[in-house]
Design a protein around this nucleic acid. Sequence first.
DNA 1: CATGAATGAGTCTTCATTCAT
DNA 2: AATGAATGAAGACTCATTCAT
Lengths: 197, 197, 197, 197
Amino acid sequence: MPRTVDPARHEARRLVIVDAALTCFAAQGYARTTTAAICRQAGIGSGTFFHYFPAKLDVLLAILELGTDETVAWFEAQRGRTDAGRVVADFVDHTADNLADPRLPGFVRAVGAVMGTPSVAVALRRDEDAQHDGLFPWLAAGCAAGEVRDDIAVDRLCTWVLAIVDGFIGRAAGERPFDPAAERDMLVDTVARLLRP
Amino acid sequence: MPRTVDPARHEARRLVIVDAALTCFAAQGYARTTTAAICRQAGIGSGTFFHYFPAKLDVLLAILELGTDETVAWFEAQRGRTDAGRVVADFVDHTADNLADPRLPGFVRAVGAVMGTPSVAVALRRDEDAQHDGLFPWLAAGCAAGEVRDDIAVDRLCTWVLAIVDGFIGRAAGERPFDPAAERDMLVDTVARLLRP
Amino acid sequence: MPRTVDPARHEARRLVIVDAALTCFAAQGYARTTTAAICRQAGIGSGTFFHYFPAKLDVLLAILELGTDETVAWFEAQRGRTDAGRVVADFVDHTADNLADPRLPGFVRAVGAVMGTPSVAVALRRDEDAQHDGLFPWLAAGCAAGEVRDDIAVDRLCTWVLAIVDGFIGRAAGERPFDPAAERDMLVDTVARLLRP
Amino acid sequence: MPRTVDPARHEARRLVIVDAALTCFAAQGYARTTTAAICRQAGIGSGTFFHYFPAKLDVLLAILELGTDETVAWFEAQRGRTDAGRVVADFVDHTADNLADPRLPGFVRAVGAVMGTPSVAVALRRDEDAQHDGLFPWLAAGCAAGEVRDDIAVDRLCTWVLAIVDGFIGRAAGERPFDPAAERDMLVDTVARLLRP
DNA sequence: CATGAATGAGTCTTCATTCAT
DNA sequence: AATGAATGAAGACTCATTCAT
């Protein structure tokens, strides 16, 4: 009886569930996704699901956390760069890259449904903070270097950059045709116009 | 011959329900709002609700339709104006005005939860079309007048104006503090920067 | 203000409702027939329905009563005849005639759904009694005349004649094709075989 | 690898529910039987019910199917017999046996309430066909052997045998006193009279 | 660890009936 | 008398979660 906790295997399976949930949430929304559907998609039994997550909401939180971690890691990786303006552009570009996963817009919509829940609000706040705090030093640097306008507080600039990115994702989630790949340059340009002194 | 129809009374009551539903949806999201909660908020019995709407989803559709009608009416009211650039700015401003109703961002999130439903998709498409089609002639005119950049097709410009507006609303729905009233000028300016030739 | 109670008009309208209900019950069954459907069929408002009948069940009782009355009247009309055997055959034939109204089988099925209700049980008992009591003297006379077998009590013969008639109606209500008009002779013959000494 | 399937246990529990439903339907009719009542009778939770049957109607269909299967099995078991006339009598007798379950007449009435539903119509048709098709060869054989009248097509004879059996069951379901056990001989005799050349 | 049968709280929706006009 | 808007009790069904195996 090998009490094999095998954390690697455990983590892998956890990710399978997270991925399955992401697929389901994106396609059906949070409320209309049943835990049974996630289990089917993940190829596990319903009992197993609750071995890995105490409740349905926790998978969603895990997805959000993964996103936040990714953001943090991305900014971590930019450390030491000196081309502040480029970093901002890269960040915007990188966000557009994330849309390569066609589930993202659907998931963003799905999250809206449970935004009211305190634990989700906290996770979202953390996510927004990660983006904001990641962006801030680069915009501040750009500002200092005169590359970025200084008539507006850096805080607000961060907010607006993120607003435009959000709008971009929102269009991808909308009903009218919108090709994120084709509009990526426009996104970068729009943010550039926002920041231009 | 008692003709107890009184369409005015009927319509008024219908609006009471719609308003109650808007409040609930914005606060709790669609799925977590029970029809009972809407009835309580509207001060009616559960049976009455289904007298006015065949199903819960139909109130949400009614709200969307009201929004679409409002958009159509607004653009209708601008007819005959010659200052195309100003009209676009006014539209953006008008959208910001709508955020005076603090329930709007919450409602927008709530809609996300049922976007997958065909009838909702249709209503949303109609709404997006109304905004797009309302904006289009003014951007085209601005373009012809040289006030608006012409390196990008007018269609795409419409989309991007709306994307920025969406981003603005999204921030209002977000967890980080964001004061729509204080950011209104920034919104107009950002759109202006987007459109500048 | 003519306080026109006009009993004739009242009775006429009552019959319109009864007829509408018969149509609906036959087509949909009792439970699946809504009072609204009856009103629609009768061309009246829902409030009017309850002016004429205290509850939905009472229309069904009225239909049953009409049937019982018809049976009683029919036997009343045979009074004085001396050809007992012929009367029995005529009764059977007359029942087959009633199937000219294609709603009859459906209605009989519909009644089954509420047979448990005491008031319906009473009405049905009255109806069965009317048939039984109407038939009895003729079978007794036939028996005395030697036209009808006497190895079985007349009571039981009544029951069996009615059982065969019921079976006939039941086939008309069944799923397999069955043409009551074409089988009418067979019905009379089958009853004749039952009664033959 | 816990393979908790145990189809026997599953089938047993399914039958418990079917039996409980039969009891309820017979006593209250279909519409007046709540799923909660079936669950109470079966000693299960409401959720369990829907684990075994997708909807209330499906238990009724299961009961019908069980009956059809029983009929088919009975005729299957007669294969090889050469005394066609006896087989028909045995069939009639066997039907009377089924009335040993006093719920049968009530259930038959209950089915009437939902006969209009397509799925029920199909199941009933299958049931009627099973009886008809089971009976047919024996009546045909009896006919060929000269034991059964040949002035009427065998098809119609089948129908009439079943009509009489239905009438018998109908009387058992009626309001007037009727003792199926005591009338069993009469039933067999009546069918014999019907078939006599 | 993994499973899936069992559970029951929670929802939407229906519809007979009432009553002010 | 006639109407139909309003009502709320009642019921079918869903689904997150538990737990024995």
